[in-house]
């Protein structure tokens, strides 16, 4: 069905509504709680699940091929994600994976770098090249090499 919302936990905060790339998490006006308005257009991408501050959203495998009796849940922090997979039949697996090596909101704007020269605008280099290529020159075809590339 993909996602479903646990009625006691949902606070109607709209986070999942904001984040769902399929535009299918909406607030039910009669209850003030979120629900999946179009389960057959759900990708089971867990974007809404990860966005919910109340852990109110869960996923149940698509009914046309997934038997009942399973649960896949996660907890995501600033630098890692923990997954818990409870399989039909009782097996439980837990995994922890890193997600980011730098603090959130630490990426500088490219405008922080000195502005490019007129010569750079003419040539084929992109921002921060050739430094970020970690090779000396930008490759070009052998037929161009005699005239050099910029």
């Amino acid at each position: 069905m993909p996602t479903f919302v646990l009625v006691d936990k949902c606070k109607g905060c709209m986070q999942c509504v904001q984040m769902c790339p399929s535009d299918i998490m909406h607030i039910d006006p009669s209850q003030g709680k979120a629900y999946n308005i179009e389960p057959s257009m759900c990708w089971e991408c867990f974007v809404c699940v990860k966005s919910c501050p109340e852990a109110a959203i869960d996923v149940r495998g698509y009914s046309d091929f997934a038997p009942l009796g399973h649960r896949v849940t996660q907890q995501r922090t600033a630098d890692h994600i923990e997954w818990k997979i409870e399989s039909r039949g009782g097996a439980v697996r837990e995994f922890v994976f890193p997600i980011r090596t730098t603090p959130w909101d630490s990426i500088p704007s490219p405008a922080a770098a000195p502005p490019p020269s007129a010569e750079m605008r003419q040539g084929e280099l992109l921002s921060f090249e050739p430094d970020y290529l970690a090779v000396e020159t930008l490759p070009t075809l052998p037929s161009n090499r005699s005239i050099g590339s910029s």
């Binding site: 089971e44 698509y62 091929f65 997934a66 399973h70 896949v72 997954w83 997979i85």
Partner: peptide, 9 residues
């Protein structure tokens, strides 16, 4: 993730 869900199911 849906594949992990399918395996779990």
């Amino acid at each position: 993730v849906g594949q992990a869900v399918t395996w779990a199911a």
